[in-house]
Amino acid sequence: MTQTNELLRLPEGACDTHSHIYGDAARYPLCPGQQPESNAAIDDYIGHAQGLGIQRHVFVQAKAYGLDPQCMLDGIARLGRHRARGIVMAGTLPGQADMAGLDEAGIRGIRFLFPEGSPIDLGAIRLAAERAADFGWSLLVQAQGPALGEVCADLEYMPCPIVIDHLGRFPAGIGADAKAFRTLVEFVANGGWIKLAAPYYGTPDGASDFNALSSRVHAFLDAGAERVIWGMNWPHPNLPAGRKPDDAATLTSLLAILRSDAEKRAVLVDNPARLYGFTPAT
């Protein structure tokens, strides 16, 4: 059962910066080989987010739709641009006029996914960063932590904000003092952004519990608390139906390790508002 905002005590204007929207396959065709997510349409998300006390939303284009953002764009329109933003999948970059149209529709970033074992394409990232900078967008980069450690120094010099996804996806055996992890902490200290999401990728037993990652979270906050954001990663598309986490419990575990009301407001309200262009919450 979803907890309420009263129990979670989220600050006014709390923002989820990472969830995916799915829709009717007849209207939004999936890419070959991709599986649908049940109970993951925009109305499902709205009900779930409202139950948690989340008031602002940044949707990340689901890889199931390839380069077609229409399902996500319709979700943004359903909520309204005063409450919702979106991040499109990297690929063939649209022309200037098309990017202007996406910006008007609420898009504020471009997503890069680099699966384990694939090289991080700095050339593609730089090209996208140059285009994104023209619109005040950011880039969202997801890769495995050790690979990220090798390119963080290059990412620091991109012309738009770079957000590293899912706490850098370091495996459970990597400590907060490991060289690759410290390189990512340095990236945040030097102006980079980090997203606290999907803790199950880094916990020893795959639990969706930020308590087990408190040393990592605190290292990022100490490096640059004004550049740390949070995302729910709903509906957790890489996990099977029987292993979907309790989002209320996950969020409660994050609140438990944030060390002050100022940190909670920074991570949940002020930082995403600044990065994605929401009106500051009062």
Rank of each mutant, 00 (worst) to 15 (best):
I107R: 10
M99K: 08
H18V: 06
E226V: 00
T2A: 13
E150I: 01
A90V: 04
L127K: 15
M72R: 05
L268G: 09
R9I: 02
S260T: 06
T250V: 02
A207P: 01
I229N: 01
L79W: 03
I54A: 10
R111A: 13
D205I: 10
E12Q: 15
E263D: 14
V151K: 06
I125K: 15
A49L: 12
R169F: 01
W137L: 15
A97F: 07
Y28W: 14
G86C: 06
K244Q: 14
Q55T: 15
I76D: 07
G242Q: 14
E116L: 11
L213A: 05
T250L: 05
F181H: 01
S19T: 10
Q96A: 15
L221F: 02
F114A: 11
T183N: 04
L79H: 08
N5P: 12
L148Q: 11
G277Q: 11
A128E: 09
E226A: 06
T203Q: 04
G66V: 09
I54F: 12
T2W: 15
R108D: 02
A124E: 05
A133P: 06
P69S: 07
N211V: 04
E156W: 04
Q3A: 06
T250P: 01
V88Y: 08
Y157H: 09
V163G: 00
G149A: 07
P146C: 04
E226L: 01
G136I: 03
A132N: 11
Y22C: 06
L30P: 03
Y200S: 02
A176S: 12
R108M: 02
G149K: 07
Y22K: 05
L221R: 03
D270M: 05
P94D: 11
P280S: 04
K179N: 04
D261F: 04
A197Q: 01
Y201N: 00
A273E: 05
I194Y: 00
N190T: 04
G136W: 02
A223V: 00
A178I: 01
T279H: 10
V58Y: 05
G95F: 03
A100C: 11
A25T: 06
I87W: 13
A256S: 08
A97Y: 03
K63F: 04
G145Q: 08
A207R: 11
L255V: 11
L275R: 07
V58N: 02
S38T: 03
Q3W: 07
I125M: 15
P94F: 09
A26Q: 07
A248T: 14
E12A: 14
